[in-house]
Simulated scan of single mutants.
Amino acid sequence: MVKTEELSPEQVYSMNETGLNIKILPEKTFLGSHEQSASGFKKNKERITVAVCSNAAGTHKIPLFVIGKSAKPRAFKNLNPSSLPVYYKSQKSAWMNSDLLKEWFNLEFVPRVKKHLKSVNLPIKAVLVLDNAPTHPHDCDVDVIRLVYLPPNVTSLVQPMDQGVIESRKLVSEILQHSESEDKGLLDVIKKINIKDVIYMLATVLISRNAFFNVY
Rank of each mutant, 00 (worst) to 15 (best):
C53F: 11
N80A: 10
V52G: 13
P63W: 08
P81F: 09
S70F: 04
S54M: 11
N80E: 14
G68K: 01
K43Y: 03
A56M: 10
P85F: 08
L64E: 03
P63M: 05
K42F: 09
V52D: 07
L64R: 07
V66T: 00
N44L: 05
K61R: 12
R47C: 08
A71D: 08
N78M: 06
K42L: 11
V50R: 12
K72V: 09
I62E: 01
T59R: 15
N78S: 12
S70I: 00
S83Y: 07
A75C: 12
V52Q: 14
N78A: 12
K77F: 12
F65L: 10
C53W: 10
G68Y: 01
L79W: 03
S54K: 04
S54Q: 09
V66W: 03
F65K: 03
I67C: 01
N44Y: 05
K72G: 00
N80P: 07
N80C: 14
S82K: 15
T49S: 15
R47Y: 02
V50P: 13
P73T: 05
K69N: 01
L64C: 06
P85R: 06
K69Y: 03
P63S: 06
C53N: 12
S70G: 00
S82M: 09
K45C: 02
K61F: 13
N78D: 13
P81D: 02
K43H: 10
L79Q: 11
N55G: 06
P63G: 04
R74L: 08
L84K: 10
N80D: 15
A56Q: 07
A75D: 09
I48Q: 06
P81E: 02
V66D: 00
A57P: 02
H60K: 13
K72F: 14
I67R: 01
K77N: 12
P81H: 07
A75T: 08
E46P: 00
L64D: 01
F65W: 07
K43R: 14
N44V: 07
N78V: 01
A51N: 12
K43P: 04
H60I: 00
N55L: 08
K69D: 00
F76P: 01
P73K: 09
